[in-house]
Design a binder for these strands. Structure first.
Lengths: 221, 221
DNA sequence: TTCCAGACAGGTCGATCATCCTGTTTTCAC
DNA sequence: GTGAAAACAGGATGATCGACCTGTCTGGAA
């Protein structure tokens, strides 16, 4: 009896496998598809507002595949922060900062590029890091630690630049640590205001003010 | 039969009414209790992370009462922004700003008080306005408009002070609008960082930096 | 070739969510 | 006093959520 049922089931599955699509094993691809969809959804809609089913559809993966790569939603959240959010901060802030000689010019350029991108897509979805930080850092200690670490890298890169500039006499009268905090805070806060108002105005304002502030410190006496 | 049941039920209800609490009609009180519980939960946990049942228990109201005052969760969210969030911004920022003569001193005092309060309760739950703004302003146009309006009054109050100070020659060389934006953004962003790190450090940094920045503008030539 | 662990399919599960319903009590206008 | 409307009680309801299950398939090691 059991054997018969098994045979019947087997043949049915075989039929399905033939008529439908062929199965492809692509762990890295599937994982990347899921994380991509999750990053996009988490940033634009929020972590809690995004359902696992919705992500399955967006990434076009089955429930089994999803459960295999990310047993819980929390794991997906952690992976998104580790693999995507940290990268975005690296690429949009830290790398431009390291490549450009003039720190104030680099910061101004970063603001300019980000504003231009927001204007282009005509929608302010906010700073990815801040969006995640605001929503879920309170509920999960591990996520909070990750977010905190990303803020740390960001702050470290900025303050290192300021410190180097002070030591090389390119700038004077500024506290590297505190100035870095102000820059990050101003950017984050401006992005929050811009998101609420759906208008890049606050970002423009802060860009101008920060440029003026740094110009004073970097001016030759 | 029906009559008998009714009588039995009636006596039971009477018994309950006697032994338990008496029903009290207190629309304003119930409404206030709900909004208080909702404000507290929304700020500390988030809007989406807070369930209606949880709020019922916290506010000690029945489902009927809840549905009567707030047919949908959205209505409660709107009420919280209108009745509480706007008030908090008014009391913590705008009023101290209006009562104090010296604008930079007022801002510094505001920072100091907020930091002291956070240290006291040993937990950084973030700026109420920003918390709400980040989480739900994207999903609901009406909420976004409300949040945007609160940001507007905040910014207006600050820039008006700066403008008056410039006109009265107390300060010079500052753009009232943009400086106001920077102050709000720096505060909001610092609060976001502080929330993520669960440490008031970023707030202290921004407090110092803003004070230094304003000191330059308010210094007698 | 055999075998096993990872990769994947598709469906089910209980819990929880926000909402709504019926019925009762209080308040207030007339 | 009487009727209507507001205020409130205590559930019920369908939908949706995240988690997990059994079973099959694939690729590589032995």
């Amino acid at each position: 009896m059991t054997c018969f049922v098994k045979l019947l089931l087997s043949s049915l599955v075989d039929l399905n496998a033939m008529s439908q699509n062929k199965r492809t094993n692509d762990p890295e691809g599937v994982r990347r598809r899921i994380i991509d969809a999750a990053y996009d959804a988490f940033v634009t809609q929020g972590y809690l507002a995004t359902g696992m089913l919705e992500l399955r559809e967006k990434a076009a993966v089955s429930g089994g595949a999803m459960a295999h790569h990310f047993p819980a939603k929390r794991d997906l959240g952690l992976a998104v922060i580790r693999d995507r959010v940290a990268d975005v901060v690296q690429q949009t802030w830290i790398e431009p900062l390291l490549t450009c000689e003039d720190t104030p010019a680099a910061i101004d350029l970063i603001f300019k590029d980000i504003i231009a991108e927001l204007v282009l897509k005509d929608r302010v979805s906010g700073c990815p890091l801040n969006n995640i930080a605001m929503e879920i850092s309170q509920h999960d200690a591990e996520m909070r630690a990750l977010v905190s670490a990303v803020f740390g890298t960001w702050h470290k890169a900025l303050s290192a630049r300021f410190k180097a500039d002070v030591e090389a006499k390119r700038a004077r009268g500024l506290d590297p640590q505190k100035t870095a905090t102000l820059v990050i805070a101003a950017y984050s806060g401006a992005m929050a205001m811009a998101k609420a108002r759906q208008d890049v105005g606050p970002l423009n304002d802060c860009r101008t003010e920060l440029a003026a502030l740094l110009a004073v410190k970097y001016r030759r006496p």
